[in-house]
Every structure is written in structure tokens, then in C-alpha cells.
């Protein structure tokens, strides 16, 4: 009996999370005119996707988002790894250093976005996906540092000691032992950084123009004077979520299997 209630609870909770998503998927395949209908599948069309990709160049937004998010993550990751390792192993900066890294995350984005805009405009970096990439890398850095620091702390220092005694200087030990052992951690951090950049809205809105808009900005632009074109928006959301879904599907296995290593005991 108790198990039944547990299942009822879990089903209700899953529905709470999944139904809106399922409804969006459904709406993305329904013609705009029938999109507010309460029936389950009042029609079927791929026009929403076609319109989005052809007339609104949504494909370009996807490509830009991909470049910006990937670029920002790849720029931030090595710095975050180096900083996180210094915090974890050498306790550089002590607790204050750690706190300061975390403190940067306490500022709301809106506080940062205006000064950033001013600086970037004088540097000529507004309206450029490169500028946005740099901003995302900077925004990601503290967060990724924090995650990787935790991961490095979990790596027994004896692994590095063993490498040093085997003849590796600290730099070699870091590259030949610490980094390979940390690949799962680097992957998780990278994925989280990618998702954060992929979904980011405020900086993208302020720092890009129509020709450089990323996915979230392009989605928001679907809200016109004629009201929200909900079927188009749904199709856009589906397209925006697909890369994340793919990552989640394949990365998960890699991360989980990588975490059980067996260096010690």
C-alpha cells in the first residue's frame, strides 16, 4: 500500500515536470491557428519549423549559440582547471580566495550587464558573438572553478606524489596524471558551462543585435505586436532543447562510468 502511494507521488511529480514540456512538443507540431485548442492533437504540420528556419533564420541563431557556448566553455575550462587546482591542492588564497570566487556569483546579472555594455561598446565588442563569448567565459569561470576545485579535492594527493617520485615534475604530474584522471570532472564542468551559456538571456539581449542574436534572444523576438506566435515559439523551444537533450543522453553515461575509477584501496 505504501509503495502505491510512493508511485502516485512520483507520477504526479513527473507529470508536473514533464507535462509542460510535452505540451510544448505537441504545440510545435500543431498549426498556429489551432495551437490554443484543448484537444490533444488537432492537426499535424511541420510548417512551424519550416517557417522558423526559413523566414526567421533560426538556424543561424542555433549556429551562433553553438559557437558562443562551445567557445566560451573551451576558453573558460583551462583557466578554471588551473585555478581550481591551485585552490584545491595549494590552498592558494585560502578561504578568502574561495569566498571571493563564490561571491562573484552573488551579483545579479542585471548589475553586471550595464557596465559590461559600456566597456564592450568602447572596445567595439558589442554586436559580436566574439564579445559574447568572452563575457560567457568570464561568467562561467568562477562557477567552473568551484566545481573543478571540488573534483580535484577528491583526487588523492598520493597520485601526484607517486607521479613525482616516478620522475614527473609538478607540471608533468598535472598533465599526465591529474588531467586524465579528471576528465569526467572536466566533462561535467564543461557541460554545465555549455548549458549555462546556451540558456543565457540578459547579456545576449543587451550585447547582440538582430544579426548576432543567440537562440534565447531569437525566441524572445517571436513575441511581436501581433502577439505571441505560440506554435513558432514551441518549435523554437524544441529546437533549442534538442542539443541539450543529446548532451544529457550521451554525457550522462560517460560521466557516471568515469567517476568510478579505482586509483586507491
Amino acid at each position: 500500500m505504501k509503495r502505491v502511494w510512493v508511485h502516485v507521488g512520483l507520477i504526479a511529480f513527473s507529470a508536473y515536470i514533464l507535462l509542460p514540456i510535452l505540451w510544448i512538443i505537441r504545440t510545435s507540431f500543431v498549426p498556429e491557428s489551432m495551437s490554443y485548442s484543448s484537444s490533444l492533437m488537432p492537426g499535424f504540420t511541420l510548417d512551424n519549423f519550416a517557417a522558423l528556419l526559413n523566414r526567421r533564420n533560426f538556424g543561424n541563431s542555433l549556429l551562433r549559440s553553438l559557437i558562443v557556448s562551445l567557445g566560451a566553455t573551451l576558453i573558460a575550462l583551462p583557466f578554471a582547471a588551473a585555478t581550481g587546482f591551485a585552490f584545491a591542492r595549494y590552498r592558494t588564497g585560502g578561504n578568502l580566495g574561495r569566498f571571493l570566487v563564490l561571491a562573484t556569483q552573488m551579483l545579479p546579472a542585471i548589475v553586471l550587464v550595464l557596465p559590461t555594455f559600456t566597456i564592450f561598446r568602447s572596445l567595439g565588442l558589442t554586436n559580436s558573438i566574439f564579445g559574447l563569448m568572452i563575457v560567457y567565459a568570464a561568467l562561467n569561470l568562477p562557477f567552473l572553478t568551484w566545481i573543478l576545485m571540488g573534483f580535484f579535492e577528491g583526487i588523492p594527493v598520493e597520485l601526484e606524489w607517486a607521479a613525482m617520485i616516478d620522475g614527473a615534475n609538478p607540471w608533468t604530474a598535472f598533465w599526465r596524471v591529474v588531467i586524465p584522471v579528471s576528465l569526467p570532472g572536466l566533462a561535467s564542468a564543461g557541460i554545465l558551462g555549455f548549458i549555462m551559456a546556451w540558456n543565457e538571456f540578459i547579456f545576449a539581449l543587451i550585447l547582440t543585435g538582430p544579426a548576432t542574436a543567440t537562440v534565447p534572444v531569437s525566441l524572445a523576438a517571436l513575441q511581436t505586436q501581433n502577439g505571441i506566435r505560440i506554435a513558432d515559439v514551441s518549435a523554437g523551444v524544441v529546437l533549442a532543447v534538442i542539443p541539450l537533450a543529446i548532451i544529457a543522453r550521451y554525457a550522462q553515461r560517460f560521466i557516471v562510468s568515469g567517476l568510478t575509477f579505482g586509483a586507491v584501496k
Partner: peptide
């Protein structure tokens, strides 16, 4: 790395990769 010694640790510290 220049002392030419070898060490065995309690937790073995084998390179997992």
C-alpha cells in the same frame, strides 16, 4: 623527481587511467 627513490603508498595510488 630527481632523488631516484621509489615509494609504495598505503592506498597504492595507482594511476587509474
Amino acid at each position: 623527481w630527481n632523488r631516484d627513490i621509489a615509494m609504495v603508498f598505503q592506498n597504492y595510488a595507482l594511476y587509474p587511467h
